[in-house]
Measured scan of single mutants.
Amino acid sequence: NQASVVANQLIPINTALTLAMMRSEVVTPVGIPAEDIPRLVSMQVNRAVPLGTTLMPDMVKGYA
């Protein structure tokens, strides 16, 4: 099963992502692949992401 990127904390809108904000977890539906975590660092979210939410490509500016 593919691990996805999950929010490790509440991430406010327009926040630049850091490693501490993300974790890898096997979830359904599948979100951004966990191997993309290094690429996500310093990218901004375009909405508030609650703790435990799977990051989807449309939630991260410049990812999709």
Rank of each mutant, 00 (worst) to 15 (best):
N1F: 11
V5R: 00
I37N: 02
L55C: 02
L10K: 05
E35C: 03
E35R: 12
G52Q: 04
Q44R: 15
A34T: 08
N46E: 15
A48N: 12
I37W: 04
E35H: 07
S24C: 03
V60S: 01
Y63S: 06
A3G: 13
M22T: 03
M21R: 03
D36I: 04
E35Q: 11
I11L: 08
G62Q: 12
A16K: 11
N1A: 11
A20G: 13
I32E: 00
R39E: 04
D58P: 14
P57W: 13
T28F: 07
A64D: 14
Q44W: 11
R39N: 12
R39F: 09
V41G: 03
Q2I: 08
L55T: 00
V60W: 02
A34Q: 10
N14Y: 12
Q44C: 03
M21Q: 05
N46R: 13
T28H: 14
M22S: 01
D36A: 10
A48H: 12
V41N: 08
V30I: 12
D36L: 11
P57C: 04
V26K: 11
V41A: 08
S42P: 02
L19G: 07
T18G: 06
K61G: 07
R47S: 10
N14H: 15
P33Q: 10
L10H: 11
T15K: 05
V49S: 02
R23E: 06
K61P: 14
V60D: 01
N8D: 13
G52I: 01
G52M: 07
S42C: 04
A7F: 01
N46D: 13
T54R: 05
I11C: 02
M43F: 10
S4A: 03
L19R: 10
M43I: 04
R47W: 07
S42V: 04
I32Q: 00
P50H: 08
V49L: 12
L55E: 01
A64M: 11
A20L: 12
K61Q: 13
S4Q: 02
V5I: 06
I32Y: 02
R39G: 08
T53D: 09
A7V: 09
S4D: 01
A20F: 14
V60G: 00
D58S: 13
T53S: 08
G52K: 04
S4L: 01
L17P: 02
V45G: 01
V45Q: 00
N46W: 08
E25A: 10
Y63D: 04
L17H: 01
V6P: 00
N8M: 11
V45W: 00
E35Y: 11
T15R: 06
R39H: 08
Q9C: 04
M56C: 03
V27H: 04
P50G: 05
T53Y: 13
Q44T: 08
M56Q: 15
T28R: 06
V27C: 03
L51A: 13
E25K: 11
G62S: 13
N46Q: 12
R39P: 03
E25I: 13
N14D: 14
P50N: 13
G52D: 09
T53Q: 15
S42L: 10
P33M: 05
P33G: 12
R39S: 14
V49P: 01
G31V: 02
A20C: 03
A64E: 09
G62K: 08
V6M: 08
T18A: 05
P29E: 08
V6W: 02
V30L: 10
P57E: 08
A34F: 05
N46G: 14
V6G: 00
A16C: 03
M43S: 07
T15P: 00
N1T: 11
M22I: 10
I11N: 00
Q2V: 10
I32K: 00
Y63R: 02
P57K: 08
A34I: 12
L10S: 11
I13P: 10
M43C: 03
V30P: 15
I37Y: 03
R47D: 07
Q2C: 03
P12L: 10
